[in-house]
Structure formats: C-alpha cells, structure tokens
C-alpha cells in the first residue's frame, strides 16, 4: 500500500522548477521527437487554408500590395503627416508596418493557440510546444513572401540596400519574434480562463502600434509619447531593424542589445508559464 498524506498539496510542475537549460533542452527534445508532426501541421495549415481558395497562395502577395496602396492614398490626401522620414513615406510605412506585422501577427496567432488547438492536444496527447512551432513556421513563411515583395517595392522607391543589411535583417528580428511569442504564450493561457483581460490586451496591442514609431518617424515624438517610447522596447526593436535595412545603420545599438536580452529572458519565463499552465487551464473547459 502506498502511504497517502492526510493533506496532499499540488507541487509546481517540473517545467516551472527546473533550470533554464533543462527547460530549453526538454523543449528541443520534444520538438525534435515531434518534428514530423510540426511539419504536418504546417502543411495542413497552409495547404488546407488555401485548398478552397481560387487565388490560393496569391493572397500572400495581394494583401501587402493593398496595404501599401492604402497608405499611398492616405499620404496623397494629406491625411497623415508622418514627420521627417529618410525615404519615401509609402516605402517607410510599408517596411514599418511589415516589421510591426511580424511582431503583431505572431502575437495574434500564438495568443489563440490553446483556444483554437487545445481540443486537439487534449484528444491526442502531444507536447504543447509543437503547437507553437507550427505557428512560428507558418508565420515565418507568411512573412517572408511579403518581405521579398517589400524589398522589391523599396528598390522601386530608390532605396539602395547594403549587403550586410540584407543578411543581418532577419537576425535582427529575432528579439521581436521572442517578444511576440512570449506575450502570445501568456495570453493564450489566460484566454482560456480570463477572457476579459485578453480582450483588453488585444485592444491594447492595436493602440500600441500607434504609440510606437511605426507609421511616423521617431523624431516627431513629443511630451508623454517621447517618455513612453523611451521605455518601450518595441520602439528600439522596430527602429533598429528598419534603420538597418533602409540605411544600413545600427540604430541605438546599446538599447537594442538590452532590449534583446530582456526579450530572451521574457521568452524563457513565458515558455515555462505556458508549459506549466496550459494543461491546468484546458482541463477547465474540456
């Protein structure tokens, strides 16, 4: 007979008590073991999503073109006064919104991963990391095609790229990826049990785009907006990647470095949060 204590306490799950190395090691092992599932989910997502569409993968090109034309029209009408930008405004907006979209879309998809795919995990029992891997791969595929389009558009607007800019630009987006995924993981858990909070966060993320220098140049920041963006990591992360690609400049490198360090630790903590609590919240709805 096993000895049972009169009062049994839940202890923290291993994923929240183990070290950073063990957490990442276990995650990598799970992803490696289920790599074929990740690929199948990506394939299912992309192929399945466009199988009933006549335009199909063409949407990946059409949507960014619509976006840039919208901004060209707004600029031509004088509705938007963007401040002093180093390149033509439509190109500036195209690239800025593209970088912002990289962050925001990753947040959006990862923050819904448990509510959309939770039932699948509950019914089939595979590691939760696989769901995130699918979202990241699909996101990178969806981002890289419009990015290539953006580069072509920028060339048309007369932007000359440095070779190192093109090489370093994808690497420079890594902190944004970790930040978007990190916030998304926390919200995906909370979205199951705290719908109201998540609705507020979703709305807050939309407002954040207009507070962060995405559609305007950092130079027009004044008053409280300047103060806000001084402590807004997104301002540095987005501006660094944008300046790197457009001018070949390393914008506020020290701030970017510390923001990157912050993103890495933030990702680690949120990964543990996601791994530890996903199971606990899903049992409340399935």
């Amino acid at each position: 007979m096993l000895k049972l204590y009169p009062i049994t306490f839940l202890t923290l799950a291993p994923s929240i008590t183990v070290s950073m190395i063990k957490t990442f090691r276990q995650t990598i092992l799970n992803l490696h073991r289920y790599r074929f599932l990740s690929w199948q989910l990506v394939r299912s997502n992309l192929v399945g999503g466009y199988k009933r569409s006549f335009i199909g993968l063409g949407w990946m090109l059409i949507l960014p073109i619509i976006t840039v034309f919208t901004w060209i029209l707004l600029n031509g009408a004088g509705v938007v006064d963007p401040g002093d930008t180093s390149i033509a405004y439509p190109a500036y907006v195209l690239l800025s919104t593209s970088i912002w979209g990289f962050f925001m879309e990753l947040y959006r998809t990862s923050s819904k991963v448990l509510t959309e795919r939770g039932r699948m995990v509950v019914m089939n029992s595979f590691p939760y990391e696989v769901l995130l891997m699918e979202k990241v791969i699909v996101h990178l595929i969806n981002f890289s095609i419009p990015l290539a389009l953006n580069i072509i558009v920028l060339l048309i607007f007369g932007v000359k790229f440095q070779w190192y800019s093109l090489l370093l630009f994808p690497v420079s987006l890594l902190p944004l990826l970790l930040l978007g995924l990190g916030i998304g993981m926390v919200i995906s858990v909370l979205r199951v049990i705290a719908v109201d909070i998540c609705t507020l966060v979703d709305e807050g993320m939309k407002v954040l785009m207009f507070l962060t220098p995405v559609v305007y140049a950092p130079k027009i920041e004044t008053g409280w907006l300047a103060f806000f963006n001084k402590y807004n990591p997104l301002a540095y992360l987005i501006s660094f990647s944008r300046e790197l690609l457009i001018n070949g400049d390393f914008y506020k490198t020290t701030a970017y470095f510390w923001c990157s360090v912050f993103c890495f630790f933030f990702f680690y903590i949120t990964l543990r949060f996601y791994l530890n609590f996903s199971q606990r919240v899903l049992e409340r709805i399935y």
Partner: peptide, 14 residues
C-alpha cells in the same frame, strides 16, 4: 467559478 479558481491557482503558484 472554475475560471476564477483557475486564475487564483495560477496566481498562487506564480
């Protein structure tokens, strides 16, 4: 109530 307990439990563990 279940959602509330979920939030409380996560908060306590954190």
């Amino acid at each position: 109530q279940s959602m509330l307990y979920g939030m409380i439990d996560i908060g306590r563990e954190i």
